[in-house]
Structure formats: C-alpha cells, structure tokens
Simulated assay, not measured.
Amino acid sequence: MAATSSFAAIYFTSALAACFAEVCTIPLDTAKVRLQLQKKAAAVAGGAGGMLATIVCIAREEGVAALWKGIIPGLHRQFLYGGLRIGLYEPVKAFFIGGTAASDISLFSKILAALTTGVIAIVVANPTDLVKVRLQADGKDTTIKRHYSGALNAYATIIRQEGIGALWTGLGPNIARNAIINAAELASYDQFKQIFLKLPGFTDNVFTHLLAGLGAGFLAVCIGSPVDVVKSRMMGDSTYRSTLDCFVKTIKNDGIPAFYKGFFANFCRIGSWNVIMFLTLEQVRRLFL
C-alpha cells in the first residue's frame, strides 16, 4: 500500500475497492441483518433459519431485488467510511511510528492506526450506516415496517420524524464495532501479508492477497460479531434506550448465543468482502498509484 501518493488518489482507490466489494456482497449482508434482528420467539415460531434459507426466503417473498435493499446508502457508506478508514490507514500508521520507513512495523502500531481510522471514519459515515440497516431491515416479516421509498426518502423521513440527531443512532456500538473490525481487518491483513512474504515461495501476488484477506475476514467476524449484533438491533429497532439497554435485553431475551446469530452469514459476508476489497485495492493501486 503506497503512502507516497496524494491522499486524494489513495482515498479514491480505497473508496472504489470498498464500493465494488459492497456491490458483490450486499445480499449476504442483508441476510445477516435479518438474522441478527430476528427475535428468539420469532425464530422458534418459524423464523428464516440460516443464511441460505434467509436469502431464499427474501428472494421468494420479496423479490430478488430485495437482497440489494440498502445498496445506495451502502455505497454512500463505503465511499465515505471505506475511503476514509482505508485511505487514512497508511498516513496514520506513519504518524504513530514517527514517519520512519521501518520494514517491520509492530503489530501494536498497526492496530492503533486501524482503531483510530475506524473511529474517524464511522463518526462521519454513521448516517449512511443507519439508513442502510433501516432499509435492509424493512422486510415483509419484520415487526417494525417503515416503508421508506429509497435512501433519500429514508434520510428525510428520519430527520423529520426523529430529528437530525437520530442519524447518529447507534453511534456508540458502531464506533466500537467499526474500530474493532477495522483493526481486525486492516492490521491483520497487513500482518498476515508481512508474515506470508517472509515465507519461502510466497510473493506479493494474488494468492498472498487472497490468504491474507481471508485471515483478516475471519478475525474480524470472531472479534466483532457481538458489537455488530448490538449495532444492527439498535439501528433496526429504535425502542432500545442505549447500547447497554440493547446489550442487557439481548442477553435476557435471547441469550448469549444471540451475539453470534448470523455468524456464518457474517463470515461469508465479511470474509468475501475482505477478499474482494483487498484484491481489488491491490490491483487498482498498482494501476493508478
């Protein structure tokens, strides 16, 4: 990842890679959100089931296009959040190590840089995340139906009915979730790639990027699933009073396993998202930077 190019070029290549990965994987994200919002009683009464069953159910009952619900705010989100968190990673990492061109940057410095860029990016992009989740959650079988006609209508309706501050609903768990997942993704990808390149037979090629991307995605899901569930529930259901309230009610009503509800869907989503994004990012930066 180049650090000597202009920030604008780094930002736009990062945003492009993130948006492409979003388009490819948003059906998995829609299934993940539906699973995470599913209450225990609904699941027992005949909920959607697993990831594949959820995808089939959404396509059959709401149409295939429903799997791409939230794609417009999803692209808004990735353009802002993806561009900032990925684009700022190298400059922030260089800042933390004093701008030195060290070949073996410590894992701690990588994690600290990724945590920082994750927080900055999601504070800016939280409204796009909220609208994306609201659109994805607004399905035939969901309890709360808002019937937004689209992304712009959702932004306008939320501001009119709930106030502009509502666009930052769930910011607490979203900061936690995105800072943690960003650290797991960017820092672990950086670290995995560095480790692989020291092994015999490995070069800076597509296979190395593929393995590093899969490793980054798996760690991100393992570490970030609990806060991801809380974030989705708070954004999808405005009755929760706070992050703690959502956390406590989820444990009380659905049990600890609820924090890993949709885990397989989440791994398929984040694992494939990371592979596609990092492969695209590496190739795009080689072309344009």
Rank of each mutant, 00 (worst) to 15 (best):
L167M: 08
T30G: 09
F267V: 07
V227Q: 06
A183F: 00
R85M: 12
W168D: 01
C246E: 01
G98P: 04
S5N: 10
T128W: 13
V248K: 12
V131E: 02
F247D: 03
G271Q: 01
A113V: 03
A184S: 11
A265G: 14
Q136T: 00
V44N: 12
G255R: 08
W168E: 00
S238R: 15
L84E: 01
N253P: 09
N153L: 04
W168I: 00
A66F: 02
A258C: 03
T203N: 12
F7H: 05
F192E: 05
A125F: 04
V119T: 07
E22N: 15
A2P: 13
E22G: 11
G172K: 13
V92A: 10
F218E: 05
L35G: 03
F108N: 10
V44Q: 13
A42D: 15
K252P: 05
I120R: 01
A258P: 05
E61V: 04
K231N: 11
C19H: 06
A265R: 04
V64I: 09
T169E: 11
A166V: 02
V92G: 04
P173L: 01
K32W: 09
D29A: 15
A183R: 00
F247V: 01
A31P: 01
S14K: 05
D228P: 01
V206Y: 14
R177A: 12
C268I: 03
Q283Y: 15
L135Q: 07
H209E: 09
V229I: 00
I195Y: 15
A45W: 08
F267T: 08
C246F: 07
T100E: 07
V123W: 05
R160A: 14
A48H: 14
E61W: 06
G99P: 02
A258I: 01
F263L: 08
A48S: 15
A216T: 00
A45Q: 14
R269S: 13
L16M: 12
F259T: 00
I122D: 00
A101R: 13
S5H: 11
I223D: 05
L197A: 05
G224H: 02
D141Y: 11
E90Y: 10
I86T: 14
S238V: 09
L214Y: 08
S6C: 06
I10W: 10
A21P: 07
G172S: 11
G163C: 04
R177L: 12
G224A: 05
G262D: 02
N205D: 14
A43R: 10
G87K: 10
D237K: 13
F96D: 05
M51V: 11
N253H: 14
H147T: 10
D254L: 05
A2N: 15
Q36H: 05
F192M: 11
L130T: 02
A212S: 15
L186T: 00
K40A: 14
A156F: 13
